[in-house]
Design a binder for these strands. Sequence first.
DNA 1: GGAGGCCTCGGAAGG
DNA 2: CGAGGCCTCC
Length: 775
Amino acid sequence: MSNYLTHLNSSQRNAVEQTKGPLMVIAGAGSGKTRVLTCRIAQLINQGVDPFNILSLTFTNKAAKEMKERIQDIVGAKAKNIWMGTFHSVFAKILRIEADKIGYPSNFTIYDSDDSKSVLRRIIKEMSLDTDIYKVNLVKSRISSFKNNLVTVKAYNTNLELKTQDDSAQRTQMGLLYDRYVNECFKSGAMDFDDLLLRTNELMFRHPQVLHKYQHRFSYILVDEYQDTNHSQYLIVKALASLNENICVVGDDAQSIYSFRGANIRNILNFKKDYSDIKIIKLEQNYRSTQNIVKAANSVISNNKDQLDKKVWTSNDLGDKIKVNRSITDNDEAFVVASNIFEIKHQEQVSNNHFAILYRTNAQSRSMEEALRKRAIPYRIYGGLSFYQRREIKDILAYFRLVTNTKDEEALRRIINYPKRGIGTSSINRMTVCAQKNGKLLWDVVQNIKTEITGLNSGSINKVENFSILINSFRGMLAEKDAYELALSITKNSGILREYQMDKTPEGISRYENVQELLNGIQNFVKVEKEKSDKEINISLTYYLEEIALITDADETNFDDTLNHVSLMTIHQSKGLEYPYVYIVGLEENLFPSQMSMTSRADLEEERRLFYVALTRAEKRATLSFALTRYRWGNLVDCQPSRFIEEIDDAYLDLTFTNLPKKSTSIVKFDSGLNYDTKVATRNNNSVSDGDLFKLKNSNVFIPKNLKRIRSNSSKVSYNDQKYETGMKVTHDRFGFGIILRLEGNGANKKISVNFTKVGEKTLLAKFAKLNILK
DNA sequence: GGAGGCCTCGGAAGG
DNA sequence: CGAGGCCTCC
């Protein structure tokens, strides 16, 4: 049991044994971070700390679950009592306990992103706002960022900076909109994801005795993935830890890739400022990857300015160099990847699940999928629509939600006429107006439709009444029936099951199966929960909803994981995972780094960290690839190789072609990150010439626009085989007049350096350079 | 009230 | 290109 310490290196051991006081562990990629966290908690428990007094916060439920299991392996069943989970799940639990103090019911609903959007869409419409200015996604992310920075409606209204931002974007009603959204959620007894953190702060700051209670309860606090915490989370941790200061945060600033959703990298960069006697331990030995991979990753990340000083190293084998493939099209790229996997599989007897294909955007999965299918290589795509986000599941959950919390207006609106029961938009609108006029809930109007409303015909009134009777009949069963019995009754008696049963289209069949799966899940839930509790208690639907509200697909036990398939996922999803063979595809400017990151250094650095994450997933071999043309939104577009390839030290690269722009021989200087901010000027304008100017900055091989016509069959490409010679006078469509200085390489890889009068020296690929030779 | 056509928009995604 | 929201027409 106690030999767990012997498997640790000295830094890891220090981190584990340093159980008192503030500690920050900077854990490089593959440095055994999870091991340290689990051992540290085991150590606390072995030292006599009550598991009830340990709070361990993670970023995903999956991580929490895995960690709990690993701790259980060391200390046994008492590990179950540790407060371990995501910020959201732990504080949702606490908020349910303390709900009355902030005016919420303890069975409050948790609105997911779709619910929030739907509420916003409704408010924007009700306020008759211009939907071009008040775009739902934009408004939502803005409100989210207000909340994550603890900017309440009141604070917003006195915040000149934020207001000016909105005013200058014509969003003068933003404050009002924010206010209405907050009220709408509150009125519905609902919290969105950001509320779970914001309301926790509210709870703790307005109720010192509550804060005090939890400060005492959580005498030891651990936070994983600290680099990805936002301001709201930071404040919660700080408040809870301020009494005992037994706080341990673990993270890697180099792997902070979630600032787009509010994560604040300063939390980790500034941690030491918050605690006076802080200890900092760096885990720098990488156990995962080869030397070439580690060093290549280091050379890339060194281009970032904002980072903590550390040196990740490994004593593993040198390994292969990072292979870089170039393809003409995205389909070719996929073909090369699939062929390569096929080859390695057979030559080296490697199984499918040793391979991962990582990409920047989900859209890139399609070509990979096709290529793998052609090679008959089993694969699995991770991500996409989660089970609980599926329409049919959300429909059923909406019934559950309304039955347990009739204030939940989103749920009510979703199902009041689903399945169709003749309560149309006009009836709903009338009831809405009536509710608003009398300051009542929509459900109040529905429930008392006969007395509450005039202007609805008797047929409509009857239909509404039947609906209200239906829902109330379910409500009557809440206390006596368990979650499964009630769920079954709801799906049957609401007509929803029949609806899906009748639909014999493939989608309909799949919907029906999903509903069955949901019901099976509930049945299983009831069974497991009953076994867990010794008492004969009713596992209610309310309890079920509370438990699943924060569950997502990623947490489901993936039985498929044992199946042998190649994994396809975005780089974001790959965080924390590792594979012997990793393919990072689509390494092109404007794709990776993403076009949207080009306007600021901070965003570009995040893209670079993302690339760092991708590269450090590889254990044995990493392969990079890019295409010269790619379909994006139905259009074939030209691509330039990503700057990230150039940023890797040549010593660790193995180019499978000869003329990738090289820093050392670069003629048009590659500016290594100094001028990113100035690029705003060239990128804001989408005109062709500006785009080309930009490309030139990053690549000394200029690949002209006309490549567009080249299709996936590369054998059909006809090269311009004009005979160039040193000293020739030439003209170029864009660069004008110039003199050929020298020729390098042969055949398709022949390069020409030309000194142009207007733009100076350029190196062009002979096969693409459209030079007119002047006699 | 509902089906189908039109229009718009598009990043990554934990809870 | 493809999904989803919205609007129109029946």
